[in-house]
Design a protein around this nucleic acid. Structure first.
Length: 475
RNA sequence: CGAGGCGUAGCGCAGAUUGGUAGCGCGCUUGGUUCGGGACCAAGAGGUCGUGGGUUCAAAUCCCGUCGCCUCGACCA
């Protein structure tokens, strides 16, 4: 790579041409490549390793919450899709359909799952008979397909990876409580693992999931002030239970429909990470999900003992539970510094003859680019501490940016100015017409309804506000 | 689906207006010297010019068709 091809932009520059910066960085760091079919992506090893870390962390949290993993089929009979009226209306435009197989036209077309409420509803209908079978809480890690018109790696692709959790409860209260509990689990996960602050809340009718009674979402603010929906949970009431016959005999002997809910996050989270933490030099990965947490760059590595010292250091760090790489490739140290900075490795250690003689190692943290000297002997403990500081630092930096870029608006003009660089908190009367008008006027949508209702009047029509809403432009 | 742009070596591009031996940079291979912020020398390998047709003695280049991808808008994890 030529000198001028590296990422040595300033932060202001990445915001100026953010979509281009994003596309460049995901391709150059080999997170992803375009697939041969429009809208598809290949998640390359460096990107997939991030996904595996996300999976591992989230999966453990689901299991701790009592959810079991299962796997349901990719293909869903077309007739299932039409059983829930709103659901089919919402998803019909973007499903891919299999019409031929085995060299013959199929009697009934099969849709490639865009989400699995229908087929899981069908199966749950078979499995649920008694109140003793409830709650039923399952999750699957899988791929889904939605034929999108405009695509971008991780953020919106025709096929993507996700998890979808589905639960049935005997009562609506329980199912609703689970819907909020999972939203909270996501929020905690975003903070602790992705170092990403989010806003959570209920979605408006216009933005809710097709077939749900209520949808809740978490929204993250990207570097350019736009919002990215990073996870959703849905309370379905009895809509799907009735459509698929999810019934049980209650304690009193009466036959009742269950109440269902679902929740999901996808590989979009990888895009969210990149657009939350990245800077002019490329990726900045939060330590909990970074495929390589510490890279060791040997200096003057042909000199006696340098490589051996690097390997010994790596051994000590690995013993402390860290993911470590010694870059003993033929490139110059300068090349390696730039390369690993671009790839977002949270901590770099430089080890050369000078350090070895002094019993020290030079450490650089990726988030602040600050260098410090550590005692070689105590490096494992110190690096663990440094990584913790990086995670916290990333969260604080992103949280500060989000706080600074949320403004309150009383008028459409104020809203328009606010959404050009961040989120806007504004009153809303609750009418779809006003929501649509805001969209038209400011290219902004209602992201979530704020839990704190502070605004008295609707930003659009001036009537009494039913809710206080966060408006933003969204990816 | 609307508007633009692009398909030439692994990647990024030039060559096209004026048709005439397929080029450049990076990367790759081999050998050597280097190594504290993208090192250097030497020698090499690598191309159905997206695809189909047409014009021509001759097409990457001109004409017609077609396929694909990217970006920006309207719809969505």
């Amino acid at each position: 790579m030529a000198k001028n091809e590296g990422f040595v932009k300033e932060i202001a520059d990445i915001e100026a041409d953010f979509p281009q910066w994003y596309t460049d960085v995901v391709l150059k760091t080999k997170l992803v490549d375009y697939g041969p079919v429009k809208g598809t992506m290949v998640i390359r090893p460096y990107g997939y390793a991030i996904w595996e870390n996300i999976q591992r962390e989230l999966d453990a949290r689901f299991k701790a919450a009592g959810v079991e993993n299962a796997y349901f089929p990719l293909l869903i009979p077309m007739s299932f899709m039409t059983k829930e009226a709103e659901h089919v209306e919402g998803f019909a435009p973007e499903v891919a359909v299999v019409t031929h197989a085995g060299g013959e036209k199929l009697q009934e077309p099969l849709v490639v799952r865009p989400t699995s409420e229908t087929i899981i509803g069908h199966m749950f209908g078979k499995w649920v008979e008694s109140w003793r079978d409830l709650p039923l809480r399952q999750n699957q890690w899988c791929n889904v397909m939605r034929w999108e018109k405009t695509t971008r790696p991780f953020l919106r692709t025709s096929e993507f990876l996700w998890q979808e959790g589905h639960s049935v409860y005997a009562t609506g209260e329980e199912a609703e409580r689970e819907t909020l509990r999972m939203l909270s689990l996501y929020e905690t996960f975003a903070r602790e693992v992705l170092a990403m602050p989010v806003l959570t809340g209920r979605k408006t009718e216009k933005e809710k999931f097709a077939g749900a009674v209520a949808t809740y979402g978490m929204e993250a603010m990207m570097h350019d002030g736009k919002s990215l929906q990073s996870g959703t949970t849905h309370y379905m009431g009895q809509n799907f239970a009735k459509a698929f016959g999810v019934q049980f005999t209650d304690k009193d002997g009466s036959l009742k429909y269950g109440y269902t809910m679902s929740y999901g996050v996808s590989t979009r989270l990888i895009g969210a990470l990149i657009m939350t933490h990245g800077d002019g030099r490329g990726l900045v990965l939060p330590p909990p999900v970074a495929p390589v947490q510490v890279v060791i760059v040997p200096v003057a590595m042909q000199k006696e003992g340098v490589l051996a010292a690097c390997k010994e250091l790596a051994f000590g760090l690995e013993a402390a539970g860290l993911r470590v790489k010694v870059d003993d490739s033929d490139n110059s140290p300068g090349w390696k510094f730039n390369e690993w900075e671009m790839k977002g490795v949270p901590v770099r250690l430089e080890l050369g003859p000078r350090d070895i003689a002094a019993g020290k190692v030079v450490a650089m943290r990726r988030d602040t680019l600050e260098k410090s000297e550590l005692s070689l002997a105590e490096a494992p403990a110190l690096v663990v501490e440094l990584l913790r500081a990086v995670t916290e630092g990333l969260y604080e930096k992103a949280a500060r940016r989000m706080r600074e870029r949320i403004v309150t608006a009383e008028t459409l003009d104020e809203l328009l100015s606010g959404v050009s660089g961040g989120f806007v908190r504004a009153g809303w009367c609750g009418d779809r017409a006003c929501e649509d008008k805001v969209k038209e006027f400011a290219q902004a949508t209602a992201r979530v309804i704020d839990g704190e209702h502070t605004q008295k009047t609707c930003v659009c029509c001036g009537k009494q506000a039913a809710h206080t809403v966060f408006f933003a432009r969204a990816y």
